[in-house]
Design a protein around this nucleic acid. Sequence first.
DNA 1: TGCTAAATATGTTATATAGCACAAATATAA
DNA 2: TTATATTTGTGCTATATAACATATTTAGCA
Lengths: 231, 231
Amino acid sequence: MTGTNDNEIGQYLSQIWDLLNSSEQELVRENTLIKHFKKNELIYRENEDPNYLMCIIKGKVKIYKEGIGGRSQIMRLMSPVQYFGYRAFFANEPYVTEAAAFECSSIAFIPMTIIEELIMENSQLAMFFIKELATDLGESDERTVNLTQKHIRGRLADSLIFLLDKYGTEADGCTINIYLAREDLANLSNMTTSNAIRTLSSFCSEGILTIDGRRIKILDEAKLRKIDKFG
Amino acid sequence: MTGTNDNEIGQYLSQIWDLLNSSEQELVRENTLIKHFKKNELIYRENEDPNYLMCIIKGKVKIYKEGIGGRSQIMRLMSPVQYFGYRAFFANEPYVTEAAAFECSSIAFIPMTIIEELIMENSQLAMFFIKELATDLGESDERTVNLTQKHIRGRLADSLIFLLDKYGTEADGCTINIYLAREDLANLSNMTTSNAIRTLSSFCSEGILTIDGRRIKILDEAKLRKIDKFG
DNA sequence: TGCTAAATATGTTATATAGCACAAATATAA
DNA sequence: TTATATTTGTGCTATATAACATATTTAGCA
């Protein structure tokens, strides 16, 4: 992990940036640090103190929880330019999740003390975080029901559609633009790696998708959405 | 459901009230309506538009999601003086959950338009909602892992401890101060009603608790916490 | 009050999914 | 490159939990 100051920070922080006046922007600019993470590198770990608002500039990040018996559950995936790492600070508790880079990623770090200061003076910024948290909470509740009530096929279909919506496709218009190990796919879908592999190859036999290593090409999105919805 | 205006609203809204100046208090007072709900009465339903901040003054409320095949999952339980019903408004979407009264309850309704106005002028109030949402999101993530990774005994133990912490005990110091149908206990713990009944009676045979109808008396909290933690 | 519906209790069976073993393929490193 | 570790793939077995059936108790209500 290497730290670099960057004078063109505004272009990366679009959502927040536009809500700040020039002196606020100056304050953020002076205190933002961009760090680069290698593939699989840890960004923060459970029980650490949350001191920074993080904004993913480049790359892909997973936020996950280490559960029972080393079984991990991926809670959220981040893509540019999303904000993360701030929830625990506001809740006044240590991190209850961990974050790691899926691939080589660049992340902006802004001290939460600064953010807190700004929020107290800038109601637009406060509202931004309220909206972010409110949206995440709705999604978290949705996921809880998906993961607990759907069967394996439905859960995997759900994850694949989620990945498709989140990261889009390659130039061909159907290859999901993220390369996940089967284990990550399993951790996202609350199942064992064996079952992720097995179910994925079932989908393949059924003509829903093709597999080329970690490259997944969706052939029949409608069918996948049907499985997501009805099992 | 009956509506009543109440001039002593401040005493019920303690957390928010103290953050407001007198003119803000006046605005809230003029626009707050207290409604009374009967046992099992619906407070809001899925897909409705969220227009009110609700504050539970008296009683007990469940917030739940209707899942697959009519199987419902209780997401949160509310006790006085907690706020709810506002998340969907901030996320700018219809309700994705439903709320119902477990028992005869009184709830204050404050229009979200008023709350939104106040937030834009009162950063303390904004911070209050940020903290609430941040805390709820952490709890939601925690619950996701509990419900997906723990076995039945662990999930039920978790629910019982949650109820104990949330609603406390009767005068005897060990009877949980809420009377839930086995079905609600099941919906809270992500299991079938049969399994909630079965597992509860196992706990009873093991001397962890006693059952008297819906009255549950915890005899060995330490053992229950152990089951919660290690299965 | 008694009648009817709902909730609780318990046993049995069916099934989804975890767990394990091992082979094949692929990636990583020396 | 070759060697070693990791990931992927497949089959088999074990098991947790759902689903179902039915009796019993309790609660709601006419």
